[in-house]
């Protein structure tokens, strides 16, 4: 069952009419383009090249090497800041420029379903990309290596949630402009700002340290991901954190689409 497949009644109740159709359409347009496959192959190749290096540098420690693929290494965060903007830049901006969006907005689908369908399609791409880590774990486990699967699968789930957040940022940026390149740039800057914000906030001397700490905690993507999913800890507080910020950017993207509908 695809993420967008919901009983029509439930989708309708949530105001998400046509979510499944939008999801399928986005999936087709995404995976019928060479860009998605090139990005996927590039990401998988980089992961494949780095995994033995991580393994070597951690002295053969498999848990740490797999963790490095899913968040402890710099590459993961670089991919997280670069790939979602590239993937989502066309999703709204290109459609607005080509006039498809106008057609879509007049169709019997809600704005929420349009945005959510696009988000699920983007997350499907990332589900494939990050699958390399559980795949390595499974293959090595078959050859007798001890693998901490609960931790690995939780890290994978966290990477998916994280990809959802950055894709939502990309979708919001894409809804802001009709130029895909500008949208990608905006999304990249926003994603980067999100990643460095906690450090910047805590460096502000004019802020009360306690306030700064609390505020930084509210936007601390890396810290929360590392302390929960990556460490193998399921923490409802951190799940809510990712869902809340994803929700904010989706909400803003939907409002922007609404503005376009009435413009």
């Amino acid at each position: 069952m695809s993420p967008g497949d919901q009983p029509a009644g439930a989708a309708g109740f949530l105001g998400l009419n046509g979510l499944s159709a939008i999801y399928r359409r986005e999936l087709q347009s995404l995976f019928l383009q060479p860009l998605a496959w090139i990005l996927l192959a590039l990401g998988l190749w980089l992961n494949g090249r780095l995994f033995p290096i991580y393994l070597q540098s951690f002295g053969g420690e498999l848990r740490s090497a797999l963790g490095a693929l899913l968040g402890q290494g710099t590459l993961f965060w670089a991919l997280m800041a670069i790939l979602p903007p590239l993937l989502t830049m066309r999703m709204v901006a290109e459609e607005a420029r080509s006039g498809v969006l106008e057609f879509l907005l007049t169709a019997p689908v809600s704005d929420g379903a349009v945005v959510l369908g696009k988000l699920f399609a983007s997350m499907t791409f990332f589900a494939l990309l990050w699958l390399s880590a559980p795949l390595y774990g499974a293959v090595l486990a078959l050859s007798g290596a001890p693998v901490d699967f609960p931790q690995l699968l939780l890290a994978y789930l966290g990477a998916l949630l994280l990809s959802g957040l950055f894709s939502a940022i990309g979708l919001f940026a894409s809804a802001l402009t009709a130029t895909p390149t500008l949208s990608a740039f905006l999304a990249f800057v926003l994603s980067l700002a999100f990643l460095v914000a906690p450090g910047l906030i805590q460096q502000q001397a004019w802020l009360d340290p306690e306030w700064a700490r609390e505020l930084a905690l509210k936007v601390d993507v890396i810290g929360r991901y590392s302390r929960s999913f990556l460490s193998g800890v399921f923490d409802s507080g951190h799940v809510v954190f990712f869902l809340a910020w994803t929700g904010v950017f989706l909400f803003l993207a939907v409002r922007r689409l609404e503005m376009q509908r009435w413009a």
């Binding site: 995976f31 019928l32 060479p34 998605a36 496959w37 090139i38 996927l40 192959a41 590039l42 998988l44 190749w45 992961n47 494949g48 090249r49 995994f51 033995p52 393994l55 494939l128 390399s132 795949l135 390595y136 293959v139 090595l140 050859s143």
Partner: peptide, 21 residues
Amino acid sequence: TLTALGYLPPLGALLVGGLLF
């Protein structure tokens, strides 16, 4: 095994992408 894991998934992605294209 590690070498195979490094090359097979990206090659597979390129093949599937090329085929679809």
